[in-house]
């Protein structure tokens, strides 16, 4: 029983850590990057002005990839802590 409690505590610790990592990435690509759009527009990426590109496409690509990675990471945590569904 006590191992079960320990496992659950560890699971929640690791889940929280993963949450903070992904919220951090999300914060950067939702807000920080766009705050500096005028400066980034001075640079070019795939022939796009970079600030424009990040808002029209770049941030979106990051979100999509991030979520598929998150799904795998969280699933791995669930399995390693023995709390995944059967």
């Amino acid at each position: 029983m006590s191992t079960d409690v320990d496992q659950r505590a560890l699971h929640w610790e690791r889940t929280k850590r993963l949450m903070f990592v992904h919220i951090g990435i999300w914060f950067v690509f939702s807000f920080v990057v766009h705050w500096f759009a005028p400066q980034l527009n001075g640079m070019s990426f795939m022939h796009f002005p970079l600030g424009y590109y990040m808002a029209a496409q770049g941030a979106l690509v990051v979100f999509v990839i991030q979520l598929f990675v998150f799904v795998r990471q969280q699933d791995a945590i669930d399995h390693e802590c023995g709390v995944a569904e059967d």
Binding site: I23, W26, S30, A59, Q66, F70
Partner: peptide, 9 residues
């Protein structure tokens, strides 16, 4: 689009 990160996490 980015709101879905919050939904999932």
């Amino acid at each position: 689009t980015g709101g879905y990160v919050l939904v999932a996490v």
